[in-house]
Amino acid sequence: MTAATARETVGTDPMVPRLFRVVHTRRDTRDTHTLVLEPTDGVPLPFRPGQFTMLHSFGVGEVPISISGDPAHPEVLEHTIRNVGAVTASLVAAQPGTILGVRGPFGTGWEVGDGKGGDVVFVAGGIGLAPLRPAILEVIAQRSRYGRVVLLYGSRTPEDLLYADDLRAWARDGGVRVETTVDNGPPGWTGRVGFVTDLVPRAGFNPVTAFAHICGPEVMMRAVATALRDRGVSGTRLRLSMERNMKCGIGLCGHCQLRELFVCVDGPVFDHDRIGPLLSKWEL
């Protein structure tokens, strides 16, 4: 055995993680927490919005998690994690000071810049807002380069809406039209109730110039993609982010295959033209 700090192995073995320290945590909803991490070696982790890391809780396991932070600040790494099982439970419980392993960033990005000059439509369902957040921040940072910017965001209940402060700030100072809806509104809820697809017809964007970016459960993405294409958004200006089991993140373990695609390296962000036909196939 040769001892090596993670830093020495960066770039040599993509299966060995770098070490990051949790410096701050935030409880976003009853089951979702955001972790702010810093590299123990001080070397920043530049990323493209839409990319993910393989996040490792020592002794528990490693899972793919999208980067939810600001691409202008690669010196901190942000992840927003929903607790659904063993590894995510351990991650959301991480306290400041905890060391986690990070491999990546991996995969394709949203490349929102491709839509400069036109309108931008973001459609998120539930935790799907996390992978879109860096892209929204990228657009806001260059707000004048884009036309209308719309965020359509649906969640199960009002308590499940992520980033309430961000949503207010993006609407107030960011020039983003933010529309939210919930599947179930409790008594006294004055906001909208219904599916996020219902927001599409009145979102107020030009389908010819618009670029759309969708992230959420697969059924939701299919419905939204259909709604957007029906309004005239072309399949090359419509992107969505896929979820598949991932064990390596680098195209070697096979798990994430979706027909000929490796979701970890060919995606997770795909043009609808490419991925749309595969989504309608049973258990592909």
């Binding site: 055995m1 001892a3 090596a4 700090t5 192995t9 073995d13 060995v16 123990t40 060391i99 392993g101």
Partner: peptide, 13 residues
């Protein structure tokens, strides 16, 4: 505490 866990890779043994 400062540097965190030490990762040891298996060498070409």
């Amino acid at each position: 505490a400062a540097s965190g866990p030490v990762i040891e890779r298996q060498a070409a043994e």
